[in-house]
């Protein structure tokens, strides 16, 4: 760990000895800090797993598929929040990705160069807005809008059609899975857009120029050169957004309707793991099965985020193709 170059001058020799002590100490501190971070994450996972263990033992794998959350009977199944977490996150991705792609395309290929920085910054600022603000904005602005203008006509028009109708049934609360997904989409939009823009910029100019030289339109260059070149990283960026959508708490809690029933309707209420933990953790008694079930859900959320992040990292790693 000490520096390898021998100090030629005599006066420096003694300094070198004391400084090698300094080097060892400094390196040890740096290493300790690294190990601390490892232990910290380990402790988080272990504390969630130990806390959730009674639930895993009591219900086994059935916990993942049981939609019953009944505090009176002391029966807990994680299916509703797990389903809510996955569905809201996936719907959010479905809504955000086309927009993010458009923004990234605009920022890398279409916008006049003086315009790129301010627009890019503005989009990035969207990512900086705290999630509680999204929740509040969603509750006071989007929810009434949905309840008044979007849901009633859709429910009236579609709910009597078989199969499809099931997706739009129920009273127009304005809250629910679809509204939560919409807010999540706005929140993850800047993340995905920024990642896409950054990876689009890694495409060597010479590739694009040769395609333009052949007479390709901008869209053809995008479709045939940029997207194939960056495909893997783009998916990585989308996964990064997915990871964020999965764990979002405050914005979702405000608008999802906080209900532990499985609902087929997109306008129906639901819960996500993060929102059920935020709501029900404070009242769950130490040692109770309910507390254990919430911690088990926390553990499951961590595992899901962990997997999504691991995939995203592998795909975004420089040189991954």
């Amino acid at each position: 760990m000490s520096h390898s170059l021998a100090s030629p001058a005599k006066p420096l020799a003694s300094a070198s000895r004391t400084s090698s002590v300094g080097d060892v100490v400094f390196a040890a501190i740096a290493k300790a800090a690294g190990v601390f971070v490892l232990l910290l994450l380990g402790a988080i996972i272990v504390s969630l797993f130990i806390g959730g263990w009674p639930t895993f033992r009591a219900f086994g794998m059935g916990f993942l598929f049981n939609a019953d959350w009944d505090p009176v009977q002391n029966v807990f199944g994680g299916a509703v929040p797990i389903y809510g977490t996955l569905v809201t996150a996936v719907l959010a991705i479905v809504m955000a990705v086309p927009l993010a792609f458009g923004i990234a395309f605009y920022l890398t290929e279409l916008a006049p160069s003086w315009f790129r920085r301010p627009v890019g910054t503005a989009i990035e600022l969207l990512a900086a807005v705290p999630s509680i603000i999204y929740g509040m904005w969603g509750f006071f602005m989007i929810v009434p809008f949905m309840a008044e203008w979007v849901q009633p006509p859709l429910i009236d028009a579609l709910s009597d059609i078989p199969v499809v109708g099931a997706l739009f049934k129920g009273p127009p609360f304005g809250t629910g899975i679809f509204t939560a997904s919409l807010i999540l989409a706005v929140m993850i939009l800047p993340f995905i857009a920024a990642t896409m823009r950054d990876v689009f910029q890694t495409v060597p100019a010479v590739y694009k120029e040769s395609a333009y030289g052949l007479g390709c339109t901008t869209w053809e260059v995008m479709r045939s050169i940029v997207i194939p070149y960056t495909r893997v990283s783009v998916v990585g960026g989308i996964m990064l957004g997915l990871g964020r959508a999965l764990g979002e708490t405050m914005a979702v809690t405000f608008v999802i309707g906080n209900t532990n029933r499985l609902s087929t309707s997109l306008f129906g209420p639901g819960n996500t793991i993060a929102s059920i933990v935020a709501l029900e953790f404070p009242e769950s008694q130490a040692g109770s099965l309910k507390l254990s079930s919430l911690l088990a859900l926390g553990f499951i959320l961590f595992v899901i985020s962990f997997i999504v992040l691991a995939i995203s990292r592998t795909l975004l790693r420089p040189g991954a193709k």
Binding site: L40, I44, V277, L295, S305
Partner: peptide
């Protein structure tokens, strides 16, 4: 200090996991 070491890669990965860990779980912890 960590170039190429296993520990270094592990720490880097774990730090990235923490970066996008759901913040409510940190509160729980």
């Amino acid at each position: 200090y960590s170039l190429g070491t296993r520990l270094g890669n592990a720490v880097r990965f774990v730090s990235d996991v923490l970066l996008s860990a759901p913040s409510i779980l940190i509160g729980l912890f």
